[in-house]
Simulated scan of single mutants.
Amino acid sequence: MAYFDRLGEDTFRPTGHVSGAWDESTQHIGPALGLLVHVLESDCASRREDPMVVSRLSYELLGVVPMDVVDVRVEVVRPGRTIELVEATYGHGDRTGIRLRAWLQQPRDTAEIAGEGFDPIPRPDEMAPWDPTTIWRGGYLASAQVRRESTGPGRSRYWVRTDVPLLADEEVSTLARMTGLFDIANGMAVRADPTRVHFPNIDLTAHLVRPPQGEWTGFDTRVTFGPGGLGLTSSVIHDHRGPLGTVAQSLTVRPR
């Protein structure tokens, strides 16, 4: 069973693997982030013959989405020959739950000057398996395979993969599949007991320096809570070749 079944050109039905960690009657937005990338990439391929790559994904999480049929829409906000800005939305009924704005760029050969400023992390086989359902509810977290090394509250390095396809009977890119795991970061380096403190994120922004490869997505994550109800989950993301970008999530921190 996949995360989503396609019902039409722009409509999808979530399966039980999408149920949320805070409330199982609503969707975990993780898989939706990957679905929006797939829809965006499909739209780009239908409009252009030249290749484009994603350099930024910026999601605004506008409200919870029930475990029900959703609609997606894509619009080119800023067309261009080498750079374009595309918006995609994810909604239920007349309500938009997620808005994505993505920058796409035409790739160039910069291999001779390539370099990175991030530290590597241990490989998946160098970390112990960890079961996220010891802390979290919901089908989404139960679908994840995790190898984790935690060094204290709000600080973890880990790798995540899943055997669950993003879409039933439909090929998706490695980027779309991996993006469906980006939002898991907020639950992998827990700073406070989620039964005592709620800390959902209200956005997610990923910056990428190259397309990802492989099965596993690696994270080097730090979680910070400020004194006035604001928080931040900040991660460097990796694939088997090394660091490939960053993911940041703004948190609303709410002691119960």
Score class of each variant (00 low, 15 high):
residue 3 Y to A: 00
residue 6 R to D: 04
residue 10 D to M: 06
residue 11 T to Y: 02
residue 18 V to N: 10
residue 19 S to R: 10
residue 28 H to G: 03
residue 28 H to D: 14
residue 31 P to E: 04
residue 32 A to I: 02
residue 34 G to W: 00
residue 37 V to I: 15
residue 46 S to I: 03
residue 50 D to I: 13
residue 53 V to G: 08
residue 58 S to C: 10
residue 71 D to G: 13
residue 80 G to D: 08
residue 81 R to P: 02
residue 83 I to D: 12
residue 95 R to W: 01
residue 99 R to G: 04
residue 103 W to C: 12
residue 105 Q to I: 14
residue 109 D to M: 04
residue 111 A to Y: 09
residue 117 G to Q: 08
residue 117 G to L: 11
residue 120 P to K: 00
residue 124 P to G: 01
residue 129 P to Q: 11
residue 130 W to Y: 15
residue 133 T to A: 00
residue 134 T to M: 09
residue 134 T to Y: 01
residue 135 I to H: 07
residue 136 W to F: 10
residue 136 W to L: 06
residue 139 G to V: 10
residue 143 S to M: 04
residue 145 Q to R: 14
residue 148 R to H: 03
residue 150 S to K: 00
residue 151 T to W: 00
residue 153 P to W: 01
residue 153 P to C: 04
residue 154 G to T: 11
residue 154 G to C: 12
residue 156 S to D: 07
residue 159 W to D: 06
residue 159 W to N: 07
residue 162 T to Q: 09
residue 164 V to Q: 09
residue 166 L to C: 09
residue 167 L to I: 11
residue 169 D to K: 13
residue 175 L to N: 00
residue 175 L to W: 03
residue 179 T to E: 07
residue 180 G to W: 05
residue 181 L to V: 03
residue 193 D to Y: 00
residue 195 T to D: 14
residue 199 F to V: 01
residue 206 A to F: 05
residue 207 H to K: 08
residue 217 T to W: 09
residue 223 V to T: 15
residue 224 T to I: 13
residue 238 H to A: 00
residue 242 G to K: 04
residue 244 L to W: 01
residue 249 Q to C: 02
residue 251 L to R: 04
residue 256 R to A: 07
residue 256 R to Q: 08
